[in-house]
Amino acid sequence: MNPDAVRNVVGIIGNIISFGLFLSPLPTFIQIVKKGDVERFVPDPYLATFLNCALWVFYGLPVVHPNSILVLTINGAGLVIEVVYLSIFFAYAPKPKRMKMLGVLAVEFVFLAAVAAGVILGAHTYEKRSLVVGSLCIFFGTLMYAAPLTVMKRVITTKSVEYMPFTLSFVSFLNGICWTTYALIRFDIFITIPNAMGTLLCTLQLVLYFCYYGSTPKGDNSGVELPVTASDGGRN
């Protein structure tokens, strides 16, 4: 079978899995709407995902990295979903959290505008544009994949998997495998690195899950409620 055809099939499967991951925080926002309060949830994961998706959308544009329609479509969908999440959060958040969101969003928009202008005006080949934007995607994608380290630390400390749902970890693992395979068929280092890192971290999450599942939880006085969010997933 033609490698490009196989890659497209893998990419389509990856898109389906990634879409599910983007929708995984939906119960959190249904809870926020029902209660009319964001409680202890924080907007940071959704602000980070918004920036990550926007960078991958830019990477997938024909002017930067041609023939990346699957990368463009899934991250475009993710970008729209994150805008909805942020809008809901903004509507029900107290004023201090709203001001923080506006400040972070302003910085993100300035950063994205600077990247777009610099790449379009300063890099005149697809290779150079892909290198600049892809390097940024690796950096921010890897940072997002590092987010579960906080949850993994809590699992070890409390000996409880309450804040690390098995389904999310397992689907994230499948997502990382799928997109790593996609990137290796026609090698793309910018997609390979963050997703390979994500696969490794999700593997560690699953190992921890099976190690501590059913254990009696210890006390945790951190007082921080962790939002359930998708990992970097198909934002690549």
Score class of each variant (00 low, 15 high):
L226C: 07
I120M: 08
N236G: 13
P94N: 12
V38C: 04
L204F: 07
T192C: 11
L72K: 03
M144R: 01
M101S: 05
L208C: 12
V207Q: 04
I193C: 07
G176E: 03
E127L: 08
R186A: 14
K95M: 14
E127R: 13
L47M: 08
D37I: 01
D4I: 11
V133Y: 11
I185W: 04
F190R: 02
M197N: 08
L72W: 05
L72M: 07
F140C: 02
K34R: 15
V104K: 04
V6T: 06
L61G: 06
G134V: 00
T180Q: 09
A5Q: 09
M144N: 10
T216A: 12
L201V: 12
A77S: 13
R186W: 09
V6K: 04
P66L: 09
S87F: 04
L105I: 15
V224Q: 06
F58E: 09
A106I: 14
P66I: 00
S87W: 08
R98F: 02
G11V: 03
V42H: 09
T157K: 13
N52T: 15
N195S: 08
S169N: 12
Y92W: 13
R7Q: 13
D232K: 11
V151N: 09
Y145M: 05
N2V: 01
N236T: 15
S231W: 09
V104E: 05
A123S: 13
R186K: 13
S215R: 11
A54K: 00
K34Y: 08
A48K: 01
Y163T: 15
Y59L: 07
A5E: 05
L79E: 06
G20L: 06
F109D: 02
P25H: 01
E82L: 09
N236K: 11
G118R: 09
W179Y: 07
S130E: 09
V57N: 05
G78P: 04
V10L: 08
S160A: 12
Q205N: 11
R7C: 11
S24M: 10
L23F: 03
V228K: 05
T28Q: 14
I156A: 02
T216R: 14
A48L: 06
R7E: 11
I189F: 10
I193W: 09
G14V: 11
P227V: 05
M144A: 03
S68C: 06
I120A: 12
Y126D: 15
